[in-house]
Amino acid sequence: MQHVTLQHYLSRLQGSLASSNLWLDEQGRARGRYFNASLTSSFQSIRSGSDLRIVAFEGYARSYDPNDQGLNIWRLLDYVANDEESVELDRLCRLLHTINFYRQQTTSELDLFLSVHSRLLAAVEGNHGAAFRRILDVLELPHQQIVLQLPQITPSQRWVLTHVAENYRRNGFRIGVNAANLEQASDLLGRVRPDTLKIDVSAANNSAAQIALLEQADRGQCQVIFRKIETERQLAQLQTANNTVHPYAVQGFFFDTPRASLAAETDTSEPLSKQIELDSVCV
């Protein structure tokens, strides 16, 4: 039986009243309450290799909808929540995603990517990651399989990002960063030394620079993930441009949209392009 302590915790949540801040619904999903909104998790795959096998999932916070059509909760609350409330929401989402991922996960092969909201960088003065690490230890869940993704930053936030990354690293987490362009990607690789780096496929539009980035990442033992791939043409162009031995991963609506069930994401009985219905609320 996988994750025994988590299963015991879930059995207690199963009997929780809907008036609590965290509970399990009739479908077994962990749900939380924030600003009178009911939240849950959706997951999108990250794929790698010539066979585009799933190597990880990224968690997204969604308002609850029984048909997996929930709205991006950060878009709803970003302009009404203050910094302290945003930190609380960020931590609630991280806990929801962790529970909803590991209650479905029966192997230790897949990683879980969790985003850190930009407000958290400056709003938290203490030891970043310590509280989350304690939760994982109590639930006996593997922190080594979790990648904490730091947000894109402005030039003035460079020192904050480096400081936060070191805090998370000291607490045993792997670090992911997001780059706006190839130049920033190269800077982040050298300065932050992340475990993963994400860049939009549309921003990586120079073949020679892409290969140079992959070579730099390979030397730093960092995995590059090209995201927001929405068409077969984008994937083909990426594969042609990066005809190299250096590995990279991919993510986007071409492969799947975020869904609550990991099993739904791993069902590849149909061609990938036929499984997709682009949905503007899933970003």
Rank of each mutant, 00 (worst) to 15 (best):
H143P: 04
H143Q: 10
Q144H: 13
I146D: 08
V147D: 05
L148Y: 07
L150E: 10
L150A: 09
P151T: 08
P151V: 12
Q152V: 12
Q152G: 12
I153T: 15
I153Q: 08
T154P: 04
T154G: 09
P155I: 11
S156W: 07
Q157M: 15
Q157I: 07
R158K: 13
W159Q: 15
W159V: 13
W159R: 13
V160W: 15
V160F: 11
H163E: 13
V164F: 07
A165P: 03
N167Q: 13
N167P: 05
N167S: 15
N167C: 15
N167H: 15
Y168Q: 03
Y168S: 04
R169P: 01
R170W: 10
N171A: 08
F173E: 02
F173I: 04
R174L: 11
G176I: 03
V177W: 02
V177Y: 05
V177M: 08
V177K: 01
N178A: 11
N178C: 11
N178W: 09
N178Q: 15
A180K: 14
N181A: 00
N181K: 00
E183S: 10
A185Q: 01
A185F: 00
S186N: 14
D187L: 13
D187A: 09
D187H: 09
L188F: 05
L189S: 01
G190M: 06
R191D: 09
R191Y: 06
V192D: 06
V192H: 02
V192P: 00
R193P: 04
P194C: 04
P194Q: 01
D195S: 13
D195W: 06
D195C: 08
T196C: 10
L197S: 01
L197F: 00
L197M: 02
K198L: 10
K198F: 08
I199H: 00
D200I: 00
D200S: 13
D200A: 14
D200T: 03
D200N: 14
V201P: 00
V201T: 03
S202E: 11
A203W: 04
A204W: 02
N205R: 07
N206C: 10
N206K: 09
S207P: 05
A209C: 05
A209N: 06
A209P: 01
A209W: 08
Q210N: 15
Q210A: 11
Q210H: 07
A212V: 03
A212N: 15
A212I: 02
L213F: 10
L213A: 04
L214V: 01
E215F: 05
Q216K: 12
Q216A: 15
Q216S: 15
A217V: 04
A217G: 02
A217H: 03
D218A: 14
R219A: 10
G220K: 09
Q221P: 03
Q221K: 14
Q221T: 09
C222P: 02
Q223A: 09
V224Q: 04
V224D: 02
F226Y: 15
F226K: 02
F226R: 02
K228L: 11
I229P: 04
I229S: 04
E230F: 04
T231Y: 06
R233K: 14
Q234F: 08
Q234W: 08
Q234C: 11
A236I: 07
